[in-house]
Design a protein around this nucleic acid. Structure first.
Length: 260
DNA sequence: CTGGGGATGGGGCCC
DNA sequence: TGGGCCCCATCCCCA
């Protein structure tokens, strides 16, 4: 299943950013751990600065984070995570912005500091505020979601509520972080760092139960499931538990043990 | 076939 | 605002 729950649906595809300013230069990442490591065949690459973006042309938008949705993604409620509690992840994205609307929250008076009471009225809900800042706060907290603009990716059909989110997504297309050892490109430096561990053999995450080491924290987390009697992912039909969702899916797709 | 490890993608959160 | 890190999810491969 594509991990698109955070992506806005196609609401206003006409809102395209200036991509010539969005795209980041290619970055060759070289970790410090190369120094002293036996990689003689590879020329010792220099450490380059991380990707830097040019100043971005701003399209009108107020990109406040969306309200967090309470969503416990753990298939088994109350399961004790060995590493951290992640039950409060923000998986918002179901806004229905009226993207064709322009700024409608204008003060009744031009004085931005507002010396009289109830002078600043929200153009959407008609609530009045004595100060301009009060109106702004109201706008950001309550009404801005309705006027939020969207930012569309030029490489695919995804849209985002903030320019920052779009820029992050653009990197998945431009892949600016390139491994100097094998040439493989990644969207983000830390992804490249994880990849480089496959070259260096570095495994900084070790299991407290069996001392097995892993290069990736997520893989250690999955491994920790194998030490648990009651695993994280449980079949609704037979209550059998699995260490990975993919295993549960396989189990369910194979017909489980109970007819649906 | 099943379970587990390796590698990677990608959005959110925090600073 | 961006980088680093978090977490979840997924695919592939192998024992």
């Amino acid at each position: 299943m594509p991990r698109s729950f955070l992506v806005k649906k196609h609401i206003n595809s006409a809102k395209k950013p200036n991509y010539s300013e969005l795209e980041s230069p290619t970055v060759f990442f070289t970790p410090h751990i190369y120094k002293g490591l036996p990689l003689p065949v590879i020329p010792q690459p220099e450490i380059l600065s991380p990707a830097a973006y040019s100043p971005i042309t701003v399209w009108t938008t107020s990109s406040l984070p969306l309200s967090p949705l309470p969503s416990d993604l753990s298939p088994i409620s109350g399961y004790p995570s060995s590493l951290s509690d992640t039950s409060s992840k923000d998986h918002s994205g179901s806004e229905s912005p009226r993207s064709d609307e322009d700024e409608q929250m204008l003060p009744k008076l031009t004085d931005p500091h507002g010396v009289e009471a109830e002078k600043f009225q929200c153009g959407l809900c008609s609530k009045s505020y004595s100060t301009y800042s009060g109106l702004l706060k109201h706008k950001q907290l309550h009404c801005d979601a309705q006027t939020r603009k969207s930012f569309s990716c030029k490489y695919c059909e995804k849209e985002y509520v903030s320019l920052g989110a779009l820029k992050m997504h653009i990197r998945t297309h431009t892949l600016p972080c390139v491994c100097k050892i094998c040439g493989k490109a990644f969207s983000r430096p830390w992804l490249l760092q994880g990849h480089i561990r496959t070259h260096t053999g570095e495994k900084p995450f070790s299991c407290p139960h069996c001392n097995r080491a892993f290069a990736d924290r997520s893989n250690l987390r999955a491994h920790l499931q194998t030490h648990s009697d009651v695993k994280k992912y449980q079949c609704k039909n037979c209550s059998k538990t699995f260490s990975r969702m993919s295993l549960l899916h396989k189990h369910e797709e194979s017909g489980c043990c109970v007819a649906h």
